[in-house]
Design a protein around this nucleic acid. Sequence first.
DNA 1: GTCATCATGTAAGCCGTTACATGATTGC
DNA 2: GCAATCATGTAACGGCTTACATGATGAC
Lengths: 203, 203
Amino acid sequence: MLDVAILGLLMDRDHHGYEIRSQLRERLGDSESVSFGSIYPALARLERHGLVEAVAPAAPRSPAISTGSLAGERASLRTLRTSAGLGRRSRKVYRITERGRQEFHALLADPTTVDDGRTFSLRVALARYLTPALRVRLLERRRQDLLERLAEVRQGADNPDLDAYARSVMSHAAHSVELDLEWIDDLLSIERSDSETFAQEAK
Amino acid sequence: MLDVAILGLLMDRDHHGYEIRSQLRERLGDSESVSFGSIYPALARLERHGLVEAVAPAAPRSPAISTGSLAGERASLRTLRTSAGLGRRSRKVYRITERGRQEFHALLADPTTVDDGRTFSLRVALARYLTPALRVRLLERRRQDLLERLAEVRQGADNPDLDAYARSVMSHAAHSVELDLEWIDDLLSIERSDSETFAQEAK
DNA sequence: GTCATCATGTAAGCCGTTACATGATTGC
DNA sequence: GCAATCATGTAACGGCTTACATGATGAC
């Protein structure tokens, strides 16, 4: 799922690795920060697979004429790692490729992966890249899972075998799932009113 | 954290591996079930470390006199794997040892591990095994972390750069954290009123 | 007699972490 | 000149999953 998240951020604009960590929290709502030891290898892998590419950032002074020499190689690497005059140096900025965009859409819509809370939130945060029909499918699937979970934790909350602390955990879990369900129902009703507004989507 | 969870279940009563998975959900509120491929190796490891031991379940007919022979070894294994006449067979039932109890308390109270939502819930579910002071420490730590997270997601919810879906994720995350905080504050006020009721705890 | 459920276990591998190594830039 | 922050990367390792292999019991 890290791959979808990174590709999702790059759909918006170019990023360098260090930045991606904070963006994951700020834009995609990721609660436990992923470590750099995950991010850099992931970017390298995505680059090897041709889904992203390193770019020379904006305002390229001395446009890096390739001389074919070793010196030229080093120079272009330096250019690659030089930022847009904003002070910082030695950044490696990545851009998503066309293949990356295709892969992103495929991963985001993949019906075989079962969502937990984290991946579901990630997908909703990127839901503008899904079709209305895929959004509804995503939401309804999660809704079904949460209804089952709700029945389970409600039973736990009423279980007299459990002590007060364990019951409290169960009852809080129930409230938490209820809140999630309200959220999903809100999102679903928005999807439905939208599709009424422009009565055009294929049934 | 699987170790604490398993040991926590065994603090209550003996369990066999297959049962532990369901108990994790039903009694400890674990939302994503851990697989058997995790549980059995964990039990084997705990047994190697002497924290749990396999027991011959109740009503041990033919008390398994050790003959030293290979046949005897097999027989005692069979006894070990025979359940308390409740139909089921070939279960391996585990009991926590004294060292296991010590280790359990140490792990549960360990101040060096930072809790995420999952481990925090687990610890609260097992909070009856903590002293009042340790419970308060656990709750207050988590409270602090959540306050920081709340500030972050509230900013995200107000960020006009984000589209409606991403903002919705942030705003739901905020509500979710608020619910968690209410829960924690409830638990804290209970802890405090309890310690007033029996005004005895060392300050 | 065969299917669903209960039950244990192993092996391969994924995905992520921590710890380490390196170095540039900014502010004091 | 030194510390804090920004920035990239590697290596070792940990924990958990999936898939596989095996087998007993109870229900139909």
